[in-house]
């Protein structure tokens, strides 16, 4: 039973100067769906999900998120971003604030929650990412894996309806990737709608409902993981999988 549509991209293009970063991309993400986007670097994966919360503006086509059409200078973009969480490759925690303040500043300043309510929510999500004891530290004192989990909690504190992950484990030391992926798997199991750009195929196999393979700004293949990993339709996807699964 497919849920309601949360993200709907219709034939969107995106240029950086003369470089076409997105080329006629169409994608639908429904409530509760877990979409994993993969592909070689420079294929436009990050650009695509950055468009989903307005960090990039697409140049052509139609993009609707939660029924709101996005375009340059959309007046509703701020409201929308509160419902679309984003986790970055470089964590982007606020270094001048403690972990707890990182988590509460959004709810307090944007959602105008009281400090007490915001801290309550923050502690709940710190529990969920398994680092309640780090609340009063500065991000710089944490390991990369812990920082990324704080970043996930920070997004969750805004109670988003969909979470975007932009290569969340690519900047991590190998031994820390697992702890972040565990949190993401738990999040997926809780029913969160997720769009994840990643090279972690083990994670994809475990949680993805839909695999999207991109190359040169185009979506080459969209298929369920069973098909994608065992018998991909496109030759390019097969080659890509061979290359990254070899190791």
């Amino acid at each position: 039973m497919p849920g309601e549509i949360i993200i709907q991209a219709d034939h969107i293009d995106k240029f950086f100067g003369t470089f076409k970063a997105l080329d006629d991309v169409s994608l639908t993400v429904r409530q509760g769906e877990r979409v994993v986007v993969c592909g070689p670097s420079g294929s436009g994966k990050s650009t695509l999900i950055r468009c989903f919360n307005g960090l990039e503006n697409h140049d052509a086509g139609r993009l609707t998120v939660e029924g709101v059409e996005l375009h340059e200078g959309s007046p509703k973009i701020r409201e929308l971003r509160q419902n679309v969480g984003m986790v970055f490759q470089q964590f982007n925690l606020f270094p001048h604030l403690t972990v707890l303040e990182n988590l509460t500043i959004g709810p307090m300043k944007v959602r105008k929650l009281s400090r007490r309510a915001a801290e309550e929510t923050a502690r709940k999500y710190l529990d969920r990412v398994h680092i309640p004891e780090q609340a009063d530290k500065k991000p710089g004192q944490l390991s990369g894996g812990q920082q990324q989990r704080v970043a996930i909690a920070r997004s969750l504190c805004m109670e988003p309806r969909v979470m975007l992950f932009d290569e969340p484990t690519s900047a991590l030391d190998p031994e820390m990737i697992g702890e972040v992926l565990d949190v993401m798997v738990e999040l997926a199991q809780s029913g969160m709608t997720m769009v994840v750009v990643t090279h972690e195929m083990g994670f994809a196999r475990k949680v993805a409902d839909t695999m999207v393979f991109m190359e040169q700004g185009r979506i080459v293949e969209t298929s369920p993981p069973e098909t994608f990993f065992t018998n991909p339709e496109s030759a390019r996807a097969r080659l890509f999988l061979d290359q990254i699964l070899e190791h």
Binding site: L55, R78, Q82, M86, F88, Q90, L93, K109, S155
Partner: peptide, 18 residues
């Protein structure tokens, strides 16, 4: 200040002023 800081702020719904 790295661009990522601004993007993170924007992604939790902050206005330019905030």
């Amino acid at each position: 200040i790295p661009q990522g800081q601004r993007e993170a702020a924007r992604s939790i719904g902050m206005s330019r002023l905030q």
